[in-house]
Amino acid sequence: MQKHLKRAALAALSLTIASEAMADQWNVSLWGKRRAFTEHVEKLAELVSEKTNGEFTLNISYGGLSKNKENLDGISIGAFEMAQFCAGYHRDKNPSITVLELPFLGVTSLEQEIELSMAVYEHPAVVKDLARWDATLLMPSPLPQYNLVGVGDAPKTLADFEGLSVRATGGIGKAMETVGAVPTSMSASEVRQAMDSGIVKAVSFAPHAHMSFGTIENGKWWTTNLNPGTVNCPVVVNTLALESLSDDHRDALLSSVDEALDHYVSHYNGQTMEAWGPALEERGIEQVTFSDTEIASFKEAAAAPAAAAWIEENTKRGLPAQELYDMVTGKIAAAN
């Protein structure tokens, strides 16, 4: 009898050890709080857990693992297995994907932004660029065109941006320089304090971020149609961690990306944008719309010079910059 009990105990212990060996727990570094910008990661975690019966879990942390500007560094040393970051936060670390942040590219929808981003992410030069950080690009965080919320007198023409301090990263910052604004790059979590203290007078964000980070709480005006561009904020995974997954767990992760992105788009186009208009009206925020002539002049002044500078700079880095730019603009032209 005692032998049978020992055998049963050993069998149970072996089963427990085997189960633990099959389990995977990944830490995921995000920032801020759960919002439209992170819905695809939340959905991904849900899908992966469902597909693996809880054997593979994504533990999402909002700021508890790393600062947002250091997420790529954390991935590179294996401090966590998955993270989100924005290319414009550290252009020198990920120059290849900053092609997606050039001003006035002409992307018209989140769906198009996804298709374009995934095509760039799969380019061999981009894969090699991110491999320097032991990072594999998993999926984008598609965002609509950025516009400004500001304090003080509302600009009536583009000339009124002369000398205005603006939080604007990447290509959007370069575009704002062409109309005389003074761009400052800072993370989203720093923006409200900078706005309250007067460090910046206007902030460039997508609608969800204006709501999530409080710029509309003291903002007086919003530009409806400046549309200088957007930022590219991918979700990446540590390459070794990805390769170390079992085939089933890796498939559960990769096969969930499309559904997670579909959920994100549905949430953003629905819940987020439905709340945006009423949020502005409730606070009495003035909506500033520029003439077609001014927008055309803005685009002419900003787009071509920024693209030429980007191509020259990144060709010197050894990237096939012209090829990447032509691929992006060609896909946009074909879609539009």
Rank of each mutant, 00 (worst) to 15 (best):
Q322A: 04
I295H: 01
I295E: 06
C233H: 06
S212G: 15
V288D: 08
A209W: 06
D247Y: 05
A252S: 02
G229F: 04
E286P: 15
P320H: 03
V257Q: 02
I216P: 03
V288M: 06
D248R: 14
L240C: 07
A302P: 10
L280T: 05
V257P: 08
E217A: 15
R317E: 14
I216T: 13
S291P: 07
H208C: 15
Y264A: 07
E217S: 15
P228M: 09
E294A: 09
E282V: 04
I311W: 12
H263F: 08
T289I: 04
V265R: 05
H267L: 08
L242C: 07
K201L: 08
A303L: 12
I216M: 11
T224N: 07
A241W: 02
G284E: 14
A241M: 02
L242W: 11
V236N: 11
A202D: 12
M211R: 14
E286I: 11
A206F: 06
H263Q: 02
T315W: 12
P207D: 11
E217T: 12
A301P: 04
V231S: 13
N314S: 04
E243C: 00
D262G: 03
A304W: 00
A241N: 01
Y264H: 13
I199M: 07
T272I: 14
I285Q: 06
E312H: 02
A303N: 07
L245C: 13
A252E: 03
E259Q: 09
P207I: 08
Q287A: 13
T223Q: 05
D251Y: 13
V235Q: 08
L254W: 01
V257F: 00
E294I: 12
F205A: 05
E217V: 08
A296M: 03
G318C: 13
A302E: 08
A275P: 03
E243Q: 06
V200F: 10
P320G: 03
A279Q: 12
H263I: 04
M211V: 15
S256E: 01
I311H: 08
D247A: 09
N225D: 00
F290I: 07
A252R: 04
G270C: 09
D262A: 13
L242M: 11
R283S: 13
T315S: 10
I216V: 15
E286Q: 13
N238R: 02
L261I: 09
S212V: 07
I311D: 05
T289Y: 03
V200K: 06
D251K: 10
